[in-house]
Design a protein around this nucleic acid. Sequence first.
DNA 1: TCTTAGATGTGA
DNA 2: CACATCTAAGAT
Length: 196
Amino acid sequence: MTPLSREFFERDPVTCARELVGAVFQWDGCAGVVVETEAYSEEGDEACHTFFRPSARKFVETHPAGTAYVYLNYGMYWLTNVLVKNGSENGFVLLRALRPLHGLDEMKRRRRREKPEDLCSGPGKLSMALGITGEDHGQPLVASRRRGFQSVEDSLPVEVVACPRIGISRAKELPWRFLESACPHVSVKASTKSEV
DNA sequence: TCTTAGATGTGA
DNA sequence: CACATCTAAGAT
């Protein structure tokens, strides 16, 4: 296990989203394997916040790669993203699902659910299980021992599939959702299967 | 297992 | 007013 450095997030969002699947995300006492992500691109992606929110463009300008971008969705769910930034292809990776590893009791308490598959199987659930809120918006997810990503070298390779993103109304066709194939902890099973 | 309606706050 | 969601409830 070695921490992902800022350089990891200084590439394009699609590559980062795909490669984050299989990494471990830890947040204080809780941790889980990333099993589902989505990429959002600052340029040419109408579903990205930067497309219709000046404040999001400002956020990209004023923060380094690896910063948490957290916002409230549908009035009640926090969604957790990582800023990806290399100068030419900026964007975000949305964390959509984890397979819980540590801190299950705390997750269960926050989620008011018992089954492990119900704890982090969706972006709103994930943030709730870990206790991520708007307070964490703008906080770094690199260069911290307790909060951030770890690569797992000695794990078996997982099969990652790409398919269209979920729950958006624009740019629906882009296959920028990445998930671990046949994993019971994802939010929605893969539709159009194309192995990566 | 699936489909549906309703709760809810904020940026533009 | 749209929105990168979730849950309970009801039908199948």
